[in-house]
Write a protein that binds this DNA or RNA. Structure first.
Lengths: 353, 353
DNA sequence: ATGAAAGCGCTAACAT
DNA sequence: ATGTTAGCGCTTTCAT
């Protein structure tokens, strides 16, 4: 199947087959300089007279020349590509991060390569460097993977890497103050007069190594303690709408139903809202619900929540890898973004008893 | 900045600097064969004795060798990468499509390269082939871009391409029966007894070239006509929550408020729901709302809607490009997936007057 | 400031 | 069935 039999000699300019892309030689010929000069001129490298540079750019434009990325990478060892790995691509969180990363890669002229690492096998293969993925990118952004310090250490030596959502010692990570987020929710609910809470948190199977839930819980409980209230239960909402729905159904039908729910994600809170509706509970009159994220739908539902700037997290993450790339050294550091309580109409004082 | 001065001769095996990746030569030496044999053996090509193949695989494993994709691409002209282009990455629709594509690329061993084409400039640069993007992929999946027949024709000669959401003559596209979707919504609402409708559709700035809204509208109006009802207005909801909110606010405050809303996306319907709540209108007692998509949140909100299998669309799209790639010819065809009415609690007979 | 030339690591003819 | 060899299109020394 010859479909593209290269190996044809010379054949100077213009299209002669399917892949008639102009090469750097064509540009050199057109501009009357050597191909080395073309390379320098086009990449904005020094030691090229302005006049010559203009002429080269001119020639390149007229030929519609764009350097072949693969050849460039092979020769230079750089790909101008950042890789994103995440166990799950469909959550609001992940898509916000992706958008944030793209925001900055776009202007930096980098490509974004995406890989879902849904299975433990893939995860292992990543850590063992057995994924084609690693060779195609100059840096990695990891979202929700919770590789832990060892995991990151494993990848770092080869590629600059930044972790979003998790903070890891000795590496580059972007996150929020989860404990503070938990505190904000608790303070809000306590001030409203609630005393009977339920935390809907737990762990989606994909993010079971995440320290995030316990941090949010710690913050929440700390505030309760300050108010002289006992610790409360945390049930598993699997970080999904259905999980939140099920958890709420079970809890509210139980013997001692809480008057306030703190969900570790807005998506779980949506499920809670649905359950409340089906149970005939009015929100917030009978039940208060506070979420976490500030998912775009939260506003439409009047959900009180703890907002985290996810797209911003993605942007910063991209900036950090790019910076690490330019420095050429393994950088470490942790960026913490603020969270903020957004009070809407899903939280109010508890019903009188 | 020497950071990685290659050009060092020989240096046989093992790491000697940052990028001490083993090459095909290392494997050849280790297995005691030529590098051509290694290439064949590892790629599963014929004409390699099983015994030799095993030995090569053995050697590759022990050296942790993985072929350099860039070198391979440069030499072969193939990248094992599919590119996704979309004007916007954060919508539910797009992230579902992305996930669907990843589902199949993952098992096919292909990478997914993502590029947001938010500005008209980028769009133009794409069509002019001035984006690095095109050279890095073997095929393209376009989502919500609405390039039209000319746009696709422009890209096709170079790369197999499939369009998701839009059906284009003479090319490969995956979509749904939008008109039927419109019909389903209208039939449902008419059967409930509604006579005063409003369509919330219009066009997000990014998808202004989309034929989708008019198809859904046509289906909707056709049914109204069959019921002897006059055509109804379509207002712009920008395909966003806020847009749906604003459109609903305006409409319901107007002189002749409708009793039923048909929103061309669930996200707009969420905005409508919010507006209704703020206006003190009960859904569905005072106002019926039907959306389109079956966004995951729709179930939680009890939104009646027209479901389309978006992730499935993505999967099929990926399969199609891959198939086109294998065939090596430009294929055309249009896959139409069924839509389905999902009745929940946001639609009911109109209030008595 | 510019050019010549040696690879980068692989694939695909073409031999054998 | 296996090996030899010529590139793929670029970057980067090294010379000039």
């Amino acid at each position: 199947m010859p479909e593209r039999s290269s190996r044809q000699r010379g054949s100077s300019s213009s299209a002669s087959g399917r892949a008639g892309r102009p090469t750097i030689d064509d540009v050199a010929r057109e501009a009357g300089v050597s191909l080395a000069t073309v390379s320098r001129a086009l990449r904005g490298l020094p030691h090229v007279r302005q006049e010559v540079r203009d002429r080269v750019i001119q020639a390149a434009e007229s030929l519609r020349y764009v350097a072949d990325t693969n050849a460039a990478r092979l020769a230079s060892g750089r790909a101008r590509t950042i890789g994103l790995i995440s166990p799950i691509l469909t959550t609001w969180y992940t898509s916000q991060v992706i958008a944030g990363i793209e925001d900055v890669l776009q202007v930096a002229g980098y490509d974004l390569l995406i890989s879902a690492l849904s299975s433990p096998q893939n995860r292992r293969r990543l850590l063992e460097g057995r994924l084609t993925f690693q060779q195609r990118v100059d840096g990695i952004v990891s979202v929700d993977l919770f590789l832990g310090a060892e995991g990151v250490a494993r990848l770092q030596p080869d590629l600059p890497m930044v972790t979003i959502g998790e903070s890891i010692e000795g590496s580059l990570s972007i996150g929020i103050d989860n404990e503070h987020g938990g505190r904000l929710a608790a303070e809000h609910l306590c001030e409203l007069g609630h005393r009977d809470f339920l935390i809907i948190g737990g762990a989606a199977p994909e993010i079971q190594f995440s320290p995030v839930p316990q941090l949010r819980k710690a913050g929440f409980l700390a505030v309760l303690a300050e108010h002289g209230l006992p610790a409360v239960a945390e049930v598993d909402g699997e970080f999904s709408i259905e999980g939140g729905y099920r958890a709420t159904m079970t809890a509210m039908r139980g013997s001692n139903p809480p008057t306030a729910l703190f969900c570790f994600s807005d998506e779980m809170a949506f499920g809670s809202l649905q359950a409340a509706r089906e149970l005939g509970l009015r929100v917030p009159a009978d039940l208060s619900i506070v979420g976490f994220d500030d998912h775009e739908v939260a506003a439409a539902l009047g959900l009180s929540t703890v907002r985290q700037p996810v797209r911003e997290l993605g942007r910063r993450g991209a900036h950090r890898v790019l910076a690490a790339l330019e420095q050429g050294t393994i950088v470490s550091g942790h960026d913490v973004f603020p969270v903020e309580l957004v009070v809407r109409s899903s939280s109010a004082p508890p019903p009188l008893r």
